[in-house]
Design a protein around this nucleic acid. Structure first.
Lengths: 233, 233
DNA sequence: TTATTATTGTCTCAATTCGAAACAATAGAA
DNA sequence: TTCTATTGTTTCGAATTGAGACAATAATAA
């Protein structure tokens, strides 16, 4: 493996993705762990000189998760001086056996355009990139220490997701095609970080006229079976 | 005047500002008209290698308007391939008497980080940059044709401003320190593009407990004088 | 001085929404 | 058949909002 050269990618420009998933009642995001450093980071990458910014982000997302057609939203671009720390990138590259020349472009200061994605947890097939041991899920409120300003990026992603939740009805993107009202409520509660009233939530969702009701789901439990719903298309 | 060299600025990275002002009941933004081209564009600029992104935007805003401490919000980064059109920048530079070498950095593809600003119309002192004949106010719903994707940038700024208006109570930034309830309502109406109910608006604003009531404003008109208000600090 | 006019600030009443709880339905277990 | 746990629906009062009426008042006209 040789280091990528600057001919192919824009210098100073990167993206980071905060990929949200939902499982076992918890909101989670994807983190990568770099080889031999114990360091965690958001999945991200660079933009090729012949592609759109958004295409680059989608390409990276596909490489890590195997998913296309993902709910994706740009939420902020991080461009402060303090986020520049060439030692971090140098250490990561050297831990991978690279010889990093002085002035190598990946050590430069970067402006990172951050996106968040909402995906169906069950559908992903995770693949680490060449610099990482692993990519896996972490609960948003139990994250390990992250490199650079990545914790700040996650924080801002969460804030944006919360404030967009009501306005854009995006909660369903974290669930499979069909789901129960309880599961939908659990998604909302995990994102907002607070319990919601069951009856009010149900009434609200139904009155919005965005759900389609399907057959009941019989779980074998000894109580009334809930309906399955999907979002109207 | 010589062309700026790339040593000082980041290549491929620019910012654009949508500066909103309010006057005579209309919502307006600042546009610059380039020398000898008849072309209009948003005020923008480049980021110096030794400054924060936000500092660069504030510096540019100060140079054009004479204002510091402005309400400023980043809302989107534009990074599609289609926005790259080197002929436009070449023409602008050449119309200013520059000799533009092949491969000059300002002709490259740029990622533009867009901000909107809310300012007190009465406070600005406008100063065009060296490439422009003028910088002046244009009604948002009567804009001339803009270069590149600047119309799209304005559109997105307006959408963001609208959706932030209620959540962040930012309307007051377009008014002087003290204002009447009617003026505040006019700001809201101009931004939202719709008439609001006078009594509901007043009740809502007062119930939010964010306004301080001051002395009355006697305009000489033969009717009850309105109170002046300011935002609580 | 007194009526008039235009606009502002407040109040009223009905419609709607929302929180909180009760009630009814029901799938499986006892 | 009864019981338990959970779901879907309804009810009731509180809070919010839309629409309008009403009262207050600064300057002008009579």
């Amino acid at each position: 493996m040789t280091l990528p050269s600057t001919d192919r990618y824009f210098p100073h420009i990167a993206y980071d993705s905060v990929v949200f998933g939902f499982s076992k009642g918890k909101l989670k995001i994807l983190l990568m762990e770099y080889h031999d450093t114990g360091w965690f980071a958001l999945p991200g990458g660079f933009v090729r000189k012949d592609e759109d910014l958004e295409s680059a982000v989608k390409r990276g997302l596909f490489e890590r998760t195997g998913l296309k057609d993902v709910y994706l939203e740009q939420f902020h671009t991080f461009g402060s001086k303090e986020r520049h720390n060439p030692k971090v990138m140098r250490t990561i590259l050297e831990a991978n056996g690279h010889v990093v020349p002085e002035g190598y472009w990946m050590l430069d200061r970067f402006f990172s355009i951050a996106y968040y994605a909402l995906i169906d947890f069950e559908k992903v097939v995770l693949t680490p990139d060449s610099l990482s041991d692993s990519i896996s899920w972490y609960e948003v409120n139990q994250l390990p220490k992250l490199i650079l300003d990545h914790s700040k990026i996650v924080q801002k992603a969460l804030e944006t997701l919360r404030s967009n939740l009501e306005r854009k009805l995006i909660g369903g993107n974290l669930l499979p095609e069909r789901f129960t009202m309880n599961e939908l409520q659990a998604v909302y509660e995990a994102i907002l970080g607070e319990k919601l009233r069951r009856t009010s939530f149900q009434r609200k969702m139904l009155s919005l006229d965005i759900l389609e009701r399907h057959e009941k789901l019989f779980t074998g439990k000894s109580h009334k079976a809930p309906y399955l719903y999907s979002f109207k298309s």
